[in-house]
Amino acid sequence: MRSSTLTAIAFSILVGLPTHSVAGSEDVVIEDAWSRASIGINRPGAAYMTLRNKGSDPVTLVGLETPLAMMPDIHETKTDANGVSSMAPTGAITIPPGASVSLEPGGLHVMLMRLQTKMVEGATFPLTLNFSDGGILTVNVPIHGIAARGPEG
Rank of each mutant, 00 (worst) to 15 (best):
T5M: 05
T5V: 07
L6Q: 03
L6G: 09
L6K: 05
T7L: 02
I9T: 07
I13T: 13
G16E: 02
L17E: 05
P18D: 11
H20D: 00
G24E: 03
S25H: 13
D27R: 10
V28R: 08
E31H: 12
E31A: 12
W34M: 06
R36A: 02
A37C: 00
I39F: 01
I41W: 03
R43K: 15
G45K: 10
A46I: 15
M49L: 11
R52F: 05
N53A: 13
K54Q: 14
G63E: 00
L64I: 10
E65P: 00
T66C: 12
P67D: 13
M71S: 05
I74C: 13
E76R: 15
E76L: 15
N82I: 04
N82R: 12
G83V: 15
S86P: 04
M87S: 12
G91L: 09
A92G: 11
A92S: 14
I93T: 06
I95Y: 08
P96E: 00
P97H: 05
P97Y: 05
A99S: 00
V101F: 02
L103W: 09
G106S: 15
R114N: 07
L115Y: 00
L115H: 07
Q116A: 06
K118S: 00
K118I: 11
E121D: 12
E121N: 05
T124K: 08
L127I: 00
L129Y: 07
L129F: 02
F131M: 08
F131A: 03
D133A: 15
D133E: 15
L137N: 01
V141I: 05
V141Q: 09
G150W: 09
E152R: 13
G153W: 04
G153I: 10
